[in-house]
Write a protein that binds this DNA or RNA. Structure first.
Lengths: 107, 107
DNA sequence: TACAAAAGTAAATTATAGTTAACTTATATG
DNA sequence: CATATAAGTTAACTATAATTTACTTTTGTA
């Protein structure tokens, strides 16, 4: 029941390639899914994107499989092209200081 | 005036190595700064971290200089070790759908 | 200011990511 | 089904990231 590849929405079953929940904690697999979902959602082929960014198809495939043995620069190219970006999260909930800031207590 | 390396906080000037504003739009330079700020804030040396993660010091330096010609796996090792993580952002503000989801309109 | 520890750089070598080209499944769609 | 288009894989090769070692520079501190 409830396989990841289908979703019930107001009685209508939606088969996807669905956008992963980007609020979740980061994982390479999640990034891969987001990239693949974006690309397919935009109706672009692997060859389209690879050619547009001057990267090879095998590299794009690696990225969409969640392989982390890939240069960051290539991943960023793809993300930017598809309209994805990162934000950086710090474990310790950043304390939203209004008061004094000692020189190295922020972390 | 207002150089990036100092900050006025309730009359006290704080020289840093300051945690970058993680809410800002992502850039490799920002990531580099966050990593360097975390490491130094935690009083760890380049050698400490490099040794703990079995990566070389020159690679760590590249990462902290914002060089993107580095494997994602190495960056993720460092980030995890220091308690940093990514979240993935989609350009188009994700429409917070409650209603119908057509099969490829999410992007 | 001298000493130590950390930061950062450089060059030579090794490991491996990335490329190209060709091929093999898959997925549509006429 | 037959054909086409995209996805995904493979192998040989090239480009370059990563490592090691050693050195230079910076920074902090007794």
């Amino acid at each position: 029941m409830n396989p990841k590849s289908t979703k019930q929405t107001l009685g209508r079953v939606v088969k996807s390639t669905e956008m992963p929940d980007l609020a979740r904690d980061f994982s390479p697999a999640q990034l891969a899914k987001a990239i693949n979902a974006k690309r397919t959602g935009m109706k672009l082929t692997l060859v389209d994107v690879a050619a547009a960014l001057s990267i090879s198809k095998p590299t794009l495939v690696k990225i969409e499989k969640g392989d982390t043995n890939v240069k960051l620069s290539n991943i960023l190219k793809v993300m930017e092209y598809l309209g994805l970006s990162f934000s950086i999260i710090s474990d310790k909930p950043s304390t939203t200081h209004t008061g004094e800031i000692s020189d190295d207590e922020w972390y």
